[in-house]
Computed example of a mutant assay.
Amino acid sequence: MKTYRMLVVLLLVAPLVLTGCWNSRELTDLAIVVGIGIDKGVKENTYKVSFQIVNPGAIAMGKQGGGGGGQAMPVTVYAGVDNSLFSALRKSTQKVPRQLFFSHIQLIVIGEELAKDGIKETFDLFDRSHELRINTPVVIARGIDAETALSIVTPLENMPSVGIAKRIEFSSGEYAQNVDVDVADVVKRLAGPGEIAISGVEIVGDAEPGQSRKNTERTVLPASIEMKGIALFKDGKLKTWADGKAARGMLWVKNEMKGTAMDIACDGQPEKVTIELTYSYTDVSVEMRNGRPAYRIHVSEEGSVTEIHCPIDLENRDKIFQLQNEWANQTEQEIRKAIELAQKEKTDVFGFGDELNRKYPTLWKRLERNWADTFADASVEIEVEAYIRRTGMRTKSYL
């Protein structure tokens, strides 16, 4: 009987301590932000913050196959200007009829002009906020402002921010001329040794028609967003861009090479053999020589022959070895291009300082102050081992 009474008391008291959904927010009251763009304001020491908001009704109509000339855009871009990012976001609420909701952000775009001025203070808000995610991808709008980059409407993805984020993922894994960097990576580099490298995006074509639905109504797009190069920073400021082979070489050094396609000279002839890289691993080590750090980069890579444009017999092992050597030499050249560019700009985007700190912490404390100059003069040895594992469905081409 006593146990029964205690149970009744607990059942009566329990509802009093339950808070319920005290902080709930109705979906119809929220403006879901999927992309943020940050530009330099017109006035000194101001920011222009753009944000891409989902139009749920338009997204739903698109999935149902609805259409017509009067169909609404899937996203809307608003912007606010103020002395801080947070103030600019709050100020922009004067334009938006709903409460901004940031937990579903897919992309952060930094305008090139702001990147040149410096981004050291830009990411404090993202690192501090409980709602903004630190695993959000970051890109630099190359030759354009961030607001324009967020305003380009593209096919296949209703939300441009999602489309750009997926481009980063697929392009870095398939062609390897851009890096996949998020807020956490940027903050880590801003707070510690080493410098930042961030992928760039640019608009190809005419940006004005690209901001309307007409951009998705043609087989050849008036405007499109493409990944373009890697921005190299020094002291939080954009110094230069790495493009093409230098950009790809950076991924080898950073051990971020997932896959790419390379055209290799065929038996000394101008015709090419295309090799698809399927595996790569890079080991970076350091030792001291005559009081200076000397780095050794060892790359081991594997791949398959996917296309040939010359009469080469792939059943001949000597020809395979020759292709492997050509491939290794070309990989070494691209890595060398990346290192020479970084050393010229005195920006350690590879994290060589981290490696020196791990192995020689006492020495690092002495070299850290002038690390940019030390990095620029460091010797780097490159060794590449390349292995062709497969030749496709045919060894002897009809050529």
Rank of each mutant, 00 (worst) to 15 (best):
V284E: 04
A261T: 15
R296Q: 08
K337E: 13
E271H: 08
E340I: 09
G236V: 03
M288W: 08
G303Q: 10
M288T: 10
I335W: 00
K254Y: 06
E301S: 13
K337S: 12
K319S: 14
M288G: 07
N329W: 01
H309G: 13
E307I: 14
E326I: 01
N290E: 14
V273D: 00
K254P: 07
I312G: 07
I275R: 06
M257P: 02
I335C: 01
Q343S: 05
N329R: 05
K245Q: 15
A342G: 03
N329T: 07
C310W: 13
L238T: 02
M262G: 08
M250S: 13
E276V: 07
N290W: 04
A342W: 03
W252F: 15
L277K: 09
T347N: 08
N255T: 09
A338C: 08
I264G: 01
Y295A: 01
T240A: 11
R292S: 14
A246N: 05
V349N: 03
K254T: 14
N316S: 11
N255C: 10
T260F: 04
V253Q: 05
T260P: 03
T306K: 15
M262P: 09
D313H: 09
T260H: 05
A247I: 08
D313L: 13
R248A: 07
E334P: 00
F350C: 06
G291N: 03
V299Q: 01
Q333W: 00
K258A: 12
L314R: 10
F352S: 05
N325Y: 05
Y295Q: 01
R336I: 02
E287R: 12
A247Y: 05
E302F: 12
N325G: 04
D354T: 15
I339F: 00
C266L: 09
I297M: 02
K272C: 06
G303A: 10
A242M: 12
A261L: 14
G249K: 04
G259F: 02
P311M: 13
G236Y: 07
G303C: 11
L323N: 01
D283G: 07
L341W: 02
D354V: 14
L251A: 14
A294E: 06
E271Q: 10
G268W: 01
M250A: 15
T274I: 06
R336N: 07
E307T: 15
I297T: 01
F321S: 13
M250R: 12
I335R: 00
T274A: 13
Q269E: 12
T331M: 02
V284M: 12
Q330A: 01
Q324D: 03
F350R: 13
P270G: 04
K319E: 15
E287H: 13
G259A: 09
M250W: 06
D283V: 09
G259V: 12
A294C: 07
D283I: 10
R248N: 05
D263V: 11
E340F: 03
Q322T: 10
R317V: 14
E307W: 15
N325Q: 07
Q269D: 11
T274V: 10
N316G: 07
G259I: 05
M288L: 10
G249M: 04
D354L: 15
D318E: 14
C310H: 14
P293T: 01
G353Y: 08
S280F: 01
G249N: 09
H309Q: 14
V286W: 02
C310M: 11
N255A: 06
N290D: 12
M288D: 10
